[in-house]
Design a protein around this nucleic acid. Structure first.
Lengths: 341, 341
DNA sequence: TTGTATGCGTTATCAG
DNA sequence: CTGATAACGCATACAA
């Protein structure tokens, strides 16, 4: 900590008051003479005083920082514009709180990538280095991530695979409902032979969207033509599409559980000479920038991604403030109609 | 800082030594009796002792954390897979050092988005809250970002617009050379009417790649057909492409300064019925995942993106260790030939 | 309403 | 090689 910055002490001397008073002013205590407040404020301003975070967290009980825990596969996470938006929202809210965001990379397997093991991560979080943590995009396989909620206030993006009543909190959209709307759209425009590409079934969002698809198909008296599994990446969307095409099964509509996968799938479709939506209607999910990045503008289910991220941080701060919070905060999805369906 | 974790004190008591000794063991001091080392290690292990970061940074001179400063437009930054890779490399290196990464959002204009003003950012950084900072993707317009180098050890990703000798450090590729190779490829496969889509000219990478293109064209005795300016996003690539098409000028090759822009541009080209590479050969830049995400696999200039990020952090740590560092570390680019050219 | 005194968990200095 | 002991900068009971 290369010093040289004014300390509370220095400000106090300069303003002719005690350290305690300066501290009170800085922290907005109400029980202080307005005249002093004025004077101290001025000195703080003039000296460019910035409270030292380390000292503050050592003395007080708050660290002033929260962690963002990202799954091991960083490149996959950041490659999806949907998550970029989530992150955007999180930083907005964290920033507004005057907090700092620590980027943490977890690694389910102890493998020697760039990330620490989950155990290391856990002890870091548990050691009180951060006041809370936001966990995004986690899989059922990510051993022990859910246990984090016992160590430190935690908010998950999307429903965790294990939920500890009273300790687990998460922000989510109703993926089942969203998937049903998506599927209904295909039915409504007259498609009857419908396929789907799902996300990873180890993620709640993956499984739920498939379930919604299945439910709506059943409700419409339709039988799914084919279901292939992807992992939310464009590449996986492409190969899942090829897989379905390879079956030779005919289909005139497909619901794809993320826009990024849809992007990859659409490429494959077009390279086979199929027209969209004439030959195959496509509905995606997310309404991330990827939805309009391809040659064909995707009809999709919009998630309020930035607000989703914002809300995750908001719930966390609310928790830190000692407020009771519902286990889950749902946000709405919405059908966005473009060219593909 | 909700406590409950064992402290140095506790470990010392348990191991029947002084706090100082435990501290030495934990920090790997060599001047300590092996027997004691052994004993202390065991206790540390057993009690799950984790040093308190705040206390450490307060007592010592290091904070154990570095900041990653990201430009205001978060969504644009994170939407580019190239930067995802950079981030990947940075976290790897930071992690290996046992440091934590603070994500900071700057905002050139004091506008009330989610980010702090640059002044706030500067004082945060200057206040010794972090030992150093990595600045990525900055524009010439980002007022005062270069000045950060005077406050705190800083490493830039790409050449900053202002360089303070002895204070500024950056990691970069030779963009001019890379652009020349890209352009030469087009010439070598017989293209003579060549256009270009540049990145923002306020960024060194933007301007340099254009300069390389111009230089190679001149060296080949060719005149550029058209040059349009993008901002490294897919959308800007698409509109730049439309712009060029709208001129009615004929071209059979185009160099596009980023794969993401190329993605957008290719969509436009195909939607106009142009074949790639038969009608128009395309060379991109980055070799990010975007290069293989579209319908046509892009020939492009590879940047070692993960290693680039890794190196930024590495240079920073080297600086922190007190080592002299060259002002710039260059990394190699490489032509990757795929379908588009 | 204000000031004083103490402690937060570590590192660093200095004797021993 | 090891153990006291003094900072580090701040928040906060407690006293005035």
């Amino acid at each position: 900590m290369r010093t040289g910055n004014p300390t509370l002490e220095a400000v106090a001397r300069e303003a002719q008051v005690s350290r305690a008073t300066v501290s009170r002013v800085v922290n907005g205590s109400t029980t202080v003479d307005p005249k002093l407040v004025e004077r101290v404020r001025a000195v703080v301003e003039r000296m460019h005083y910035i409270p030292n975070r380390a000292a503050r967290s050592l003395a007080g009980r708050m660290s002033g920082s929260v962690a963002l825990l990202v799954p091991e596969d960083l490149s996959r996470f950041f490659a999806d514009p949907f998550f970029a938006a989530i992150l955007h929202g999180i930083t907005q809210r964290v920033d507004a709180e005057g907090y700092v965001l620590n980027l943490l990379v977890s690694s389910g397997s102890g493998a020697g990538s760039g990330g620490g093991t989950i155990a290391k991560t856990a002890s870091y979080l548990g050691a009180g280095n951060v006041d809370g943590v936001v966990v995004v995009s986690h899989h059922a396989g990510d051993a022990g991530v859910e246990e984090l909620a016992k160590l430190v206030p935690a908010v998950f993006g999307g429903r965790p695979s294990k939920v500890y009543p009273g300790q687990t909190h998460y922000v989510d959209v109703d993926n089942v409902a969203g998937a049903r709307v998506a599927t209904r759209r295909l039915v409504e425009i007259g498609r009857r032979r419908i396929a789907m590409i799902t996300g990873p079934l180890t993620m709640a969002a993956g499984a739920d969207r498939r379930d919604g698809f299945l439910a709506e198909m059943a409700a419409s008296g339709l039988e799914p033509v084919a279901i292939a599994i992807g992992d939310f990446t464009a590449a996986s969307g492409a190969s899942a599409m090829s897989e379905i095409l390879a079956t030779g099964l005919k289909f005139d509509g497909i619901f794809i559980a993320s826009d990024l996968m849809a992007l990859g799938a659409v490429n494959v479709l077009k390279s086979k000479g199929l027209r969209i939506p004439e030959d195959v209607a496509v509905v995606g999910f997310d309404d991330s920038p990827a939805a309009v990045q391809g040659e064909v503008q995707l009809t999709t289910i919009r998630q309020p991604s930035i607000r989703l991220g914002w809300m995750m941080a908001d719930v966390l701060f609310s928790l830190l403030a000692g407020n009771e919070q519902p286990e889950v905060q749902y946000m709405d999805t919405e059908l966005v109609i473009r060219q593909s369906a």
